[in-house]
Design a protein around this nucleic acid. Structure first.
Lengths: 186, 186
DNA sequence: CATCGATTTCAGAAATTTCTGAAATGATAG
DNA sequence: CTATCATTTCAGAAATTTCTGAAATCGATG
């Protein structure tokens, strides 16, 4: 087997992602596996990951399963080798899109469903709570629709939008709703 | 003391937020306290919260402390009553801004710091990893800058932007970088 | 400054999550 | 079909997080 040692740079990066893992809704091992794959030019198999991270083989298996559930890794095969190899996509934008989509699925969509369900039950006589729930549902809907629109954009347009910087504000300033393209008054 | 019972609507909402709490980087009690305050028209004190949620007084205390660390609740006082009362802001946009800012602080900023630190150490001889780290740092910088710009917008502009829908794509389409305001060609 | 109510702290208990090793399952090649 | 290697499953161990009750601290009031 190849060299099992990680460079100090890799070590540091991987340990950091391990710590951040829990804040991102995954556990430490999942974060570390992801970080390792992210820094590896070539696909790695489970055995290699196990050795490099010094975790149990079964933990690696579960971590990879989890990363697949998140759509964050790609499965590859090497001719003449029957083991599974894993990589992360090269394109960082694709990674971010996936991450956002998955977090939305886990953190936002269930709440939207619940709010709709609560509203369907009809007025219960608690006007304030009902109004608050409706308002929250509307806001989440607006944000998820916006996310859908952003997601529809090709990466190049997205980057274009994101790098507009200060212009974004100016573009909208004082613009009447029906003609938002009008140049902002100096 | 007032009525300690929650309506079924409140119950359901609060239990849901308790479950979601963990996915949002807080624990169940914190999620429940937040949900309760969110649905309450008037500020509540710790004692009331404790009774309504059936948790220990100390747990409530810690939960409120956590919510204050997140800037998600406001402390209020009622004349002639020396207890602390808590509310959530009325404005949902303000809430979302806070939530996003706090999550960024916890989930993104530490990584940005770490990546910069790794780059500062200079080339270590692992060209691929170094390139990947630089690329990641650049992307995160672009996104945080974009976030800063969005944050600078007044709420009305933000809503305007978010409700633009399909127009967003059209606006950018084929637009040359130096004149992004030009109307897209039909 | 003593009292009383409100709040926080904190050590340990309880609950939950993560991780492991062993056994089971799957899959390919002979 | 069998042997062999790869992967998954899963019950329990280990680690971590959450929660509680008791004690300590805080802070206003007389």
């Amino acid at each position: 087997m190849i060299d099992m040692t990680l460079t100090p740079l890799q070590q540091d990066f991987i340990l950091h992602f391990g710590e951040m893992g829990s804040r991102w809704g995954m556990n430490r091992t999942v974060g570390q596996i992801y970080a390792l794959l992210f820094l590896s030019e070539d696909p790695l198999n489970a055995e290699t990951i196990t050795d490099k991270l010094r975790v149990s083989r079964s933990n690696t298996s579960m971590g990879l399963k989890e990363l697949q559930a998140w759509n964050l890794v790609r499965l590859r095969h090497i001719p003449g080798d029957r083991r599974d190899y894993f990589t992360t996509p090269d394109d960082l934008w694709e990674i971010v899109r996936t991450l956002v989509a998955e977090r939305r699925k886990r953190e936002v969509d269930p709440t939207l469903t619940k709010l709709r369900e609560l509203e369907l039950a009809g007025p219960q006589g608690d006007a304030y709570a009902e109004a608050r729930i409706a308002e929250l549902r509307e806001m989440i809907e607006m944000m998820t629709q916006f996310h859908d629109e952003m997601n529809r954009l090709e990466t190049e347009r997205l980057v274009q939008l994101m790098t507009m910087g200060r212009k974004l504000g100016g573009m909208l300033e004082k613009a009447p709703r029906l003609n938002p393209f009008r140049r902002a008054a100096k």
